[in-house]
Design a binder for these strands. Structure first.
Lengths: 241, 241
DNA sequence: CGGAATGTTGATATGCCTCAACTAAAGTGG
DNA sequence: CCACTTTAGTTGAGGCATATCAACATTCCG
């Protein structure tokens, strides 16, 4: 398994040019490595964290808790992502972060991270850029969940997850990990469980994609992209695959 | 009318502690002031801007263009907002920004902004924080548009707009500017025009709010907050009103 | 093997969309 | 200033997609 700083360096390099000194500074940071269980919360709405989380392995998710106890999932996070970088500057969490998987995370103290930013602004800028790409992904989620019909919406969601996994080097023969139950998938794209079930079967029937047992299998990428009206520009990769 | 840097200083101060030197640095920046017409695009999806926009007066909006030409509005921006601060670090626009109003904007060159950040990291951090609050607003929009029934959704949207206007000192006897047609309102919360028309009338009938001729009139804030399931924590104001 | 979690399927209900007509208001030109 | 056009908003009828409720099937796991 990769060291935490390698994973983060790789991720930041997807959209930013890091200098050798930036990478060295990342390596020198002291972090805590932790294993987390499926469905375990890592931070909760209302918390005031003093560390940032980076994903080393597995998948994390952000979510809002709705009145009545339901959830709206906001984004998924794979190796290299820092799903609460915002906590560096926003005291209170406005959402929660949980593990979908058995995952491994690293914890970086805010204080040490901020000190590095003052010494190496370009590294700070890379992390800033990272948070901006996330904002772009949120914008796309607004459009996806608000303006696209269900099948298109699901296809778009699959495209995004697969595309990001591929950029992170986490795909293997057209498949990647996507450890969501259909219930959770519904709470992500904003529809009920029976509708999701039928929609997944419908996409399965096209022969383009299949989601089964936490694995997303892409069989016809071009057709899936067309189905999902997917344009990866919003992911702002320096070097699209 | 306020000078551009006063408006931006005020806005940043809503969530950040600026040092006197930060404010002075903002004042020293050279900017271009421009008036824009209603419905005029300020930047378009695909552009590579070399300036940042700050709103001095009026209301701007971000939007995605859908296949078929429709729009999904993503966020509204009032005095002090910098609706494309992200363009500092993300080359290509993944969405467009237009004026809803007759508006006045100021243009700050990326180069000069970045230079100030290197000299005054705390100012950079304030702008960073600003982009993070926007991301929190996007997350809330995902939840609002995906998980709440139409009336709640509309009420929540009204709450957010009113609350932000109040924080910016732009409300007067319970009303603020909200220059959206019902068509645009539908393209914001993700429903059709007839549905919006009925929903607006429905809220009107409760006696809590009214939207008419581009003005949002709040008659019973507490009840509106309850209707919209609104909790302003996600706006991360230092000093909630 | 039994129990829990997950996924599938069907029947019914409903909220929203589409289409369409109409009203009201605002801007335009004679 | 008034007829004309355009834009914005309202209302109604019918249909469709998705929600809800409920039963059942399947897989996973102890």
């Amino acid at each position: 398994m990769d060291a935490w700083h390698e994973v983060v360096t790789k991720k930041l390099s997807e959209h930013s040019r890091l200098l050798a000194a930036d990478i060295a500074a990342l390596e020198r940071l002291r972090v805590t490595i932790r294993a987390v269980e499926p469905h375990q919360d890592i931070v909760r709405q209302g918390d005031r964290p003093d560390v940032c989380v980076a994903v080393v392995k597995g998948v994390l998710a952000r979510y809002h808790t709705l009145q009545g106890g339901g959830r709206q999932y906001l984004s998924l996070h794979i190796a290299g992502d820092m799903p609460d970088a915002q906590s560096l500057f926003l005291e209170r969490m406005d959402h929660s972060v949980c593990a979908l998987n058995e995952a491994v995370i690293s914890l970086i103290s805010h204080a040490s991270f901020l000190k590095v930013f003052e010494q190496r602004p370009t590294l700070g800028f890379a992390v800033w850029r990272d948070t901006l790409v996330e904002a772009a992904i949120f914008r796309q989620a607004i459009t996806n969940n608000s303006a696209r019909p269900l099948l298109t919406r699901l296809a778009h969601f699959f495209c995004e997850q697969y595309y990001r996994a591929r950029a992170a080097g986490l795909t293997r023969s057209g498949s990647c990990s996507l450890p969501l139950t259909q219930t959770e998938l519904g709470e992500t794209v904003g529809v009920s469980l029976p509708s999701i079930s039928r929609a997944v079967q419908s996409l399965r029937a096209t022969g383009c994609v299949d989601l089964r047992a936490g694995t997303l299998q892409v069989r016809d990428w071009q057709r899936l992209v067309a189905l999902g009206d997917f344009n990866p520009d919003y992911l702002h990769l320096r070097d699209p695959p």
